[in-house]
Structure formats: C-alpha cells, structure tokens
Amino acid sequence: MEGCPMDVVFNQVFAGLSMASILLIIALGLAIIYGTMGVINLAHGEFVMLGAYATWALQSFAGLGVVTSIPLVFVAVAAVGWVIEKVIVQRLYTRPLDTILATWGIGIILQQAITLGVGTESHFVRGPQWLSGNVEIGSLVMSNYRLFVIAFSAAVLGVSWLLMTRTEFGMRLRAVIQNRGISECYGIEAKKVYSITFAYGAGLAGIAGALITPLFSTIPTMGTGLVVDAFLVVIVGGLGSIIGTATAAMLIGEVTALFSIVLNDTLGRIAVLAGIIILIRFRPRGLFPSDIRR
C-alpha cells in the first residue's frame, strides 16, 4: 500500500470492519449449527433472505423500523428454522450427504416461494432516522448505521458466547457434543437441544438479514453470495468455534478491504480465496479447531 493516502487506508479499514461484523452474525449461526450437530446447512443464506423480507414487510405494512423489527424477525426466522429441523433435518442426522441435499433443496424452495409471493424486483428498506449521518474524525468518515451494526454484532457475539458457556442450556449442549449417548443417559434430550440450536442459528441469520436491508438490495437471491463468505469464515475459524468465527470474520473482512486498495475488488477477492486455500492446506481444521459431534 506504499503511496496510498492514509485517509483511504483508514476508511477501507472501517469498511472491512463493517463487512466483518455482518459476516460474523451470519457465520455465527452456521458455526453453532455445525459445531453442535455436524450439519452443513445450505439453506442458511435463505434464512438471511427471510430476515430481510420480514423486515421489509414489517416496515411496509406495520410501520416498524429496522431496529424495532429485529426481535420479531429473530423469533419468526427461528420458528421457520425450528419447523425445518423438526420435519426434515432431524430425520437425517446419520446421513450427512442427504442433509446437504435436503437443505440445498429447502433453500431453493424458500427462494421460489418468495419469488412467487413477492416477486423478483428489489425492495427498499429505510435505515433508522436516528442513525442517519456520519461521524467524522479527520479524514475518516464513519456511517452511524454501520457503527451501530458493528456494536450490535459484538453484542450478539457476547450473548452467544455467554449462552454457550455460562447457561444450563450451554452445559447441556456441550454434553451432547462430547457424547450424545452418555448425555441422554443423564436425562438430556439431544433432539430438543438440536432443535433449539438450529432455531437459534436460523434466528441469527434472520437478524443479519434485518441489519443489512438498508445496505443491500432485498431480492430473493441475496443470501447466496453472503452464505459463501460465511462458510469461508466458519472454515477458517475452525468449524464450530465461536472465538474462531469472530477472528476469521475480522481477518477476512479486513484483508478483503485492504486488498481492494492494492488490487481491485475482483483481484482482491481472488487473493483472499488463494490465501484461504493455502491456510487450509497447512491447517485443515482452521485457526481454532474445536470438537464437534461425530
């Protein structure tokens, strides 16, 4: 980055942090689901899309703002995830390839359902009026809404970590991960734990969809590209590690943003993917590998 003005570098660092915060919330749901159940959920991007459309509907028909809609969106998308887990995914735990195909099919169904019901045109969602404007520190310009997204993603990370490590549910979850058979002997209902975990992961994706509506076009295919980046975050982070997911989201977001200065957006993305391939070659279990259900 020699010769590049420092104000450009600082603004790109902020842009990378903003990108990382969005990736973090999406990837957290993936990491928790995979770390608990060993399920690769290819419908996760569609949960993000459902969250975005739920936010648009709440704003258009109920007059609710983006921030006000977040709790309702979380509950609604979590409920969809809970039903999908109960009806389909729960029957496929011992058949991982079938689970991949099933969740891929569910994602297509959700996309087509939104296309048929709402249409393919892009929908606009207004950002919160009280978060309009920017914070300027010298030549660094930071959007108030993006600052809110960064702070909110940090709060979601903290709540998820506390839920998994400092609550009775988290204790039951860790017991099921370590040994499902023995944990069931002690009265822990593994199926119930899996259902709640899958619903929570889906709800997090819904929250991410709500937060990005003022920043991204709300269209039926919006989740596809986002979930690819989220999968990269989970792989680099260590396939189920919450701390690893946070570290990987920050790393990928910042490196992508900084590479776009030296190269361009396309070449920068290629360079990031090449770096991830090299990392996986030498650390196939990611930066912070964790034990998952076998």
Results as ranks from 00 to 15, higher is better:
L204Y: 00
A202M: 05
I261R: 04
T256E: 12
L239M: 14
R281Y: 15
L232V: 14
A230D: 00
A274Y: 03
G203Q: 08
G275L: 13
F198Q: 11
I278Y: 09
I219L: 12
G244T: 01
A230L: 06
T247K: 06
G238I: 01
R281N: 13
R281A: 15
A274T: 13
G209T: 03
R269M: 13
G238L: 07
A248Y: 03
G240D: 02
G244L: 03
L215K: 07
P214H: 10
D229H: 10
A249T: 07
L232G: 12
T221N: 08
L226C: 06
A248P: 01
I207L: 11
I212E: 10
G237Y: 08
A205N: 05
S217L: 15
S260W: 03
L258T: 03
F259A: 15
L279R: 08
G206L: 04
V228T: 05
L226Q: 11
S241R: 08
I252S: 03
G209V: 06
I280E: 07
A205I: 02
G268S: 13
V262S: 13
N264F: 00
A208H: 02
V262I: 14
G225P: 13
L263V: 13
T256P: 09
I278N: 09
G225S: 09
I242P: 00
A199N: 05
I270C: 13
L204R: 02
A257H: 00
V236H: 00
I280A: 03
F198M: 11
L258R: 08
V228E: 00
Y200K: 07
L226V: 11
I212C: 04
I212H: 05
F216C: 11
L232P: 07
L226S: 02
N264W: 01
I276N: 10
L263K: 07
L267Y: 14
V262E: 12
L258E: 06
A248H: 06
T218V: 15
F231H: 00
S241K: 08
L211I: 10
S217T: 15
F259H: 04
T224I: 15
L226D: 01
L204C: 01
T266E: 14
P220Q: 10
G268Y: 12
I261D: 01
A199V: 00
A249N: 06
L273W: 10
L211M: 12
P214M: 07
G240Y: 07
T256M: 14
G275I: 14
I235R: 01
V227M: 10
L232A: 11
F198I: 09
R269F: 13
V255F: 09
M250V: 15
M222W: 05
V236W: 04
L263T: 14
I252L: 14
M222T: 01
L273V: 14
V272E: 04
D265C: 09
G223Q: 08
I261A: 03
I278F: 11
I207A: 07
S241V: 11
A246L: 09
